[in-house]
Amino acid sequence: MSIGPWTVIFATAAVTILMRLGGYWLMARVPMTARVRRGLEALPASIFIATVAPIALKAGVAGVAAVCVAAGVMFLLRRELPALAAGFATAAGLRAMGM
């Protein structure tokens, strides 16, 4: 079997569907112990941080600065749009300066 683009698309789609339906299905069957609950609660933020940190670091000064500015504005204003705008402006500005 050769692996082509459509194999990848359908395989990643199948995994995603499993996730979208699986939680509802599982909740009727898995005992929600304190440990399981703590792990599940920490999972979403862990995913985001594990994604952002290496990618930003690899992108250099502009990457780290843009991510920090976006997070900082979000922390202060608690609104997504200004945070995204500030992050993109930082990225574009630093890249224009050759960083």
Binding site: T51, A56, A59, G63, V67, A83, G87, A92
Partner: peptide, 24 residues
Amino acid sequence: ERYGLDLVLPIVFATLTVPMARRA
């Protein structure tokens, strides 16, 4: 990358992380 468009994903994610980290 000249316009920082390659940083869309980390910027969006960094923004989404803040409210989650706040609740952690």
